[in-house]
Amino acid sequence: HNLTITQGKLFFHYNPKLCLSEIHKMEEVSGTKGRQERNDIALKTNGDQASCENELLKFSYIRTSFDKILLRWEPYWPPDFRDLLGFMLFYKEAPYQNVTEFDGQDACGSNSWTVVDIDPPLRSNDPKSQNHPGWLMRGLKPWTQYAIFVKTLVTFSDERRTYGAKSDIIYVQTDATNPSVPLDPISVSNSSSQIILKWKPPSDPNGNITHYLVFWERQAEDSELFELDYCLKGLKLPSRTWSPPFESEDSQKHNQSEYEDSAGECCSCPKTDSQILKELEESSFRKTFEDYLHNVVFVPRKTSSGTGAEDPRPSRKRRSLGDVGNVTVAVPTVAAFPNTSSTSVPTSPEEHRPFEKVVNKESLVISGLRHFTGYRIELQACNQDTPEERCSVAAYVSARTMPEAKADDIVGPVTHEIFENNVVHLMWQEPKEPNGLIVLYEVSYRRYGDEELHLCVSRKHFALERGCRLRGLSPGNYSVRIRATSLAGNGSWTEPTYFYVTDYLDVPSNIA
């Protein structure tokens, strides 16, 4: 807008934040220059609390790290170098490059900038070799853009010569660093050979998330399962459950009422301010606690030095998902009996873990797994792929695949051998790939016309006998059925096997 004052003059007093240069501009645009008398524009009460600059400061050096910015700028000295009290560095987070010096300023003089007072450097006698002032900004957020400017702080001049310097606002972004852990990993099994893994992005990506790394490792069953005799009275049979499938998407929606109208769909109840505040506090606490764990609990591995020492970490090797089922080394339970199943799973520490690289999504279907087997899954978020990966501390989750139908069934015939004193040795093959492992066998036998009897055969007993022995049988026709019990439950009964026990007292003698 054009402003013209045809008559009258300007009068400025007691404006401590208004620089004289701005008042002189007002004289020019209003056409009143030359009308004012000496005392109409006070030299001592206008701009006496402001830094009124008329020179431009330029930054000469900028260096960044993930949490620091090192700045240096060209030296500046007023005509009387004693008038320079120091520099004021202003900075704040700036997602967009549209910041002005006066953003967030209120009537009390406060604003949204963080201000650092910096002492002037030592003055050199040689004007050509003056030290460049600077400042190291610490405690910054990774991968965050900051708006920065600097200006001088000078003393009051009796001659009211307006001098000083100020830089333009520059924008500097800190470097990326390792992201925080992925949030809320959930693993479920939808079949006997697959596990579905879902997660949420890290709360602090500290860069642009480029991919996720998912490692999985087959877990050995508890050692007590191999040692305890679950045929003993009072000892509860062990059981394991597989990871249940995901709930429906509708039930997972946030901010939804727990109660549904019987007449149909209901609208979600909005969260109160107290609920939102509580969630923010919980989120802040979780982030602080995660940072504490990362800094205190997890110790970084030592990389190899120039002395030739090897990095103890196993090298990563990509495998196809079809090879995942046989990740671990199978060892027989008892070496003397080769027909026992290889369900003991000690994992070799030198073995390469299978892994998958996930790009542009937060889910993965891990296939080719062994049925009813526990897996430990390790999830890392990465925001750099080359020249070397920059990934987060791992988040861990466990899951067990679903049982395989008929995996616990005894394959092959049940054979028998009759000894003296009416002892019958029953023999059968253990299931080759049971659900988890076989903890015991149930032997059901009966003599024709009598009630059915049951015998429990422990895992250890089966390994020693290759089956079991029935003792003290009365003469007669017998039928026997056997079924295995694994961590997933009972298998199917075998087809009945028949044998006849004679009275050993009636056996004919070869003595003449």
Rank of each mutant, 00 (worst) to 15 (best):
T303D: 15
T497M: 13
Y478S: 00
S342T: 14
S251P: 15
E310K: 01
A463R: 11
L277H: 12
V397Y: 08
T494E: 00
C391Q: 02
P413M: 14
E290G: 15
R370I: 13
T210N: 02
E279Q: 11
S479T: 15
Y478M: 00
P244H: 14
G368M: 11
G476W: 00
D311H: 14
E227A: 06
S223L: 10
A405R: 13
S274V: 07
S444T: 11
S479C: 03
S304F: 15
H425S: 12
S239D: 11
V358L: 08
Y448A: 14
V329Y: 11
R316L: 14
K302Y: 10
T340Y: 13
A381P: 01
S509R: 05
S341P: 08
R318V: 13
E442N: 07
Y504S: 13
T386N: 07
E451S: 14
H454A: 04
Q380P: 00
P332L: 08
D291P: 08
Y230P: 07
V480L: 06
Y498D: 12
R466W: 04
A395R: 06
V331D: 13
R313G: 04
V358Q: 11
D408R: 00
D222A: 14
R459L: 12
R447C: 05
E442H: 07
C456T: 02
S305T: 14
T502E: 15
K236R: 09
T373R: 04
L379P: 01
V297Q: 15
H454Y: 15
I276L: 06
N206S: 06
F215G: 13
S444P: 01
N490W: 15
S243T: 06
S315A: 08
T494M: 02
C269E: 15
R447Q: 15
K278R: 09
S257I: 04
R240V: 12
T415Y: 13
G264M: 08
K233S: 11
V296C: 15
V443Q: 00
S363W: 12
V331R: 09
E217H: 14
V480A: 06
S479I: 05
F499V: 11
G325A: 15
N255P: 15
S304Y: 09
K317I: 09
G476I: 00
Q219H: 03
K406T: 11
S344R: 13
T288K: 15
V414G: 01
L379R: 00
A263N: 13
F355S: 10
Y500S: 10
V439I: 08
T373I: 04
A263M: 11
R318Q: 06
S304T: 11
E247S: 13
E356P: 06
L280P: 15
T288Q: 14
E247C: 08
D311F: 15
A330L: 02
R400C: 09
L440G: 07
S363C: 12
G325V: 13
G491W: 01
R353M: 04
E362Q: 13
V359H: 12
D229Y: 13
C456G: 01
V424P: 02
L321E: 12
G467T: 03
L487K: 08
S363M: 03
R471Q: 15
D250R: 09
T347A: 12
S203G: 11
S239T: 14
L470Y: 01
G467S: 01
L369F: 04
S392D: 02
K278M: 07
G476L: 00
H294V: 10
L225C: 05
G467Y: 05
E281C: 06
C269P: 10
V299L: 06
T303E: 11
N422S: 14
T401Q: 01
G234P: 06
H294N: 06
Q256E: 02
L453P: 03
V331P: 14
D291T: 13
L225S: 11
S344N: 07
T288E: 13
K271F: 12
T288D: 12
F355P: 04
E279S: 08
I377T: 02
H211L: 11
F215P: 00
P434N: 03
E351F: 09
R319V: 09
L426I: 02
E217K: 14
E451P: 13
G412S: 13
H461D: 15
D291S: 07
N490V: 09
F372P: 01
L505F: 12
P354G: 12
T272K: 03
D450V: 13
E389R: 14
L213T: 15
Y498K: 12
T272I: 05
L437D: 13
F462N: 03
D503Q: 13
R446A: 11
S274N: 09
R400G: 06
S348E: 09
C269A: 09
E433F: 15
G264C: 02
